[in-house]
Computed example of a mutant assay.
Amino acid sequence: MALTIGIIGLPQSGKTTLFNTLTKAGAPVSGYATSTVQANLAVVQVPDTRVDSLSEIFQPRKKTYTTVEFVDVAGMGQATQAAKEKKEGLSAEFLGHIRNADALAIVLRTFANDNVPHVYNTIDPIRDLDSLNAELVMTDLSTIERRIERTKKAAKSGDKKYQQELDLLLRLQEALNELKLAREVEISAQDKVVTDELFLLTLKPRMYVLNTSEDMLGSANEILAKIEQGEVVDPEAVQKELKGIAQVALRAKEEGAQVVAVSAKLEAELSELSEEESNEYLEALGLPQLGADRVIQVGYRLLNLITFLTAGEDEVRAWTVTRGAKAPEAAGKIHTDIEKGFIRAEVTHFNDFMECGSFAAATKKGVQRLEGREYEIQDGDIAHFRFNKGK
């Protein structure tokens, strides 16, 4: 399961700089607004120290990390007035780049820089978010209205399935016309069959990536932590850039969205240093890790994903499954034949294994377990699956 994150934002928000930091792809960065619909795509390995630690022990011929695909699309939020009146939203080509993304990373600029003019001339991340949301809403509305026309014709047959679908579509249409996001509409498991076919952008899990100035990054993270912990933060009581950061964080908390603060410019500079130098600089700033790594971690949390591991002399590998996945489903990530012929799983948690130093020692200590079909794989499990090859 490869996670795909679509990166969107206004021109000059720093999204392509962030993309380059995440992927080391070297995509061209423009200092001016652009109307191109081309996208930058890159697949990157997810840093995982557990894979590294196990590789030191097993010395495998191969080690494999999980991956994330990032899609960086052109600057949004500048639809023409004619397009807005027609409720056209994003172009089909533009939409094609992000409709299959599992989640959206919405980059919002909070820094001021006279050398990089803002498309609206002033810095206001909440205004920018509203502008981006409006364009996403228009795109979804266009999709919904086309589907309504088709479903109305089908409903004439008297089939209740189409009438139920039409009821859902009309509820979505009403919400979108009020500039609400599709995710604000109550959707049942039965409704989800329909919405999965529509690829609605305002239904996707989302994170807000606040692109801050370097000297505000530490303070920004402090504010985000306070809001996440439920402390009261008054946006009007902090200085200008931090005000916008607090406002977005509070909006995210209301929506159940995630928020990350990064300095794309700083991280681009850090990417040119050695790992040791980069870590020293981060430590001096009071930051535990690069924002790029935090974006990936937040993506996993958004989609409720976890990682389990397999380890041996041939390969040490990380695998991604949805939290709550049963052992046979996890086995199927390795090969469908293993899922079909599943007998049981030998499971040792990474932490227990590292304390013991080997599977033999883990077995002797009693921390390696045999689990059946109903076992839910946990993040950090090292699993070996026994299966019937004949099935």
Rank of each mutant, 00 (worst) to 15 (best):
V51Q: 01
L41M: 14
I98H: 06
I5H: 05
T34Q: 14
A42S: 13
L54K: 07
H97Q: 12
Q12S: 10
E69D: 13
S13C: 06
T17V: 11
K87L: 02
P28S: 07
K62R: 13
R50G: 02
P11N: 10
Q45P: 06
L10R: 00
N20P: 05
P28A: 04
L41R: 13
V44Y: 06
F58Y: 15
A33F: 06
A74W: 01
S53K: 15
L54V: 02
Q12M: 07
K84F: 00
S55P: 03
P28W: 07
V44D: 13
F58S: 09
A92R: 13
L22Q: 06
G77T: 03
K62D: 13
I8R: 01
K24G: 10
F19R: 12
T4S: 12
K63P: 01
N20Q: 04
V73E: 10
Q45C: 08
H97G: 03
G31R: 06
T36E: 12
V73P: 04
P60L: 01
Q12N: 15
A74H: 04
T67V: 09
V71P: 06
F58L: 05
L41V: 15
F94W: 06
S91V: 02
I57L: 15
V73K: 07
Q59I: 09
A25G: 08
A83N: 02
G26Y: 11
A27E: 11
G89P: 01
D72T: 11
L41H: 14
D72N: 12
A79F: 00
G9A: 15
L18S: 01
L18W: 05
V29N: 02
Q12P: 02
L90E: 00
R99P: 04
N20W: 04
V29G: 02
V51Y: 02
S53A: 15
L95C: 00
V44G: 08
I8H: 04
A82F: 01
T36I: 08
Q81M: 11
G89S: 00
N20C: 05
A83F: 01
I98R: 04
A92T: 12
A33M: 12
E69Y: 05
P47F: 03
L54S: 06
R50S: 02
P60E: 00
N20S: 03
T66K: 07
F94R: 03
K15G: 14
V37I: 15
I8T: 12
K86N: 12
Q38W: 06
L10M: 09
I57G: 09
V51L: 02
L22C: 09
L90Y: 00
Y32N: 07
I57R: 15
K86L: 15
L22R: 03
K63T: 06
G26S: 07
T23K: 04
E69S: 15
V68G: 04
G77H: 00
Q59G: 12
K62A: 11
I57V: 14
V37P: 03
L54H: 03
S91C: 01
S30C: 09
T16C: 05
D48C: 06
P11R: 04
V71A: 15
D72R: 12
I57N: 13
M76V: 01
Q78P: 01
L41D: 12
F94L: 13
A82C: 00
V29L: 04
V46C: 10
I7P: 08
K24W: 09
T16N: 05
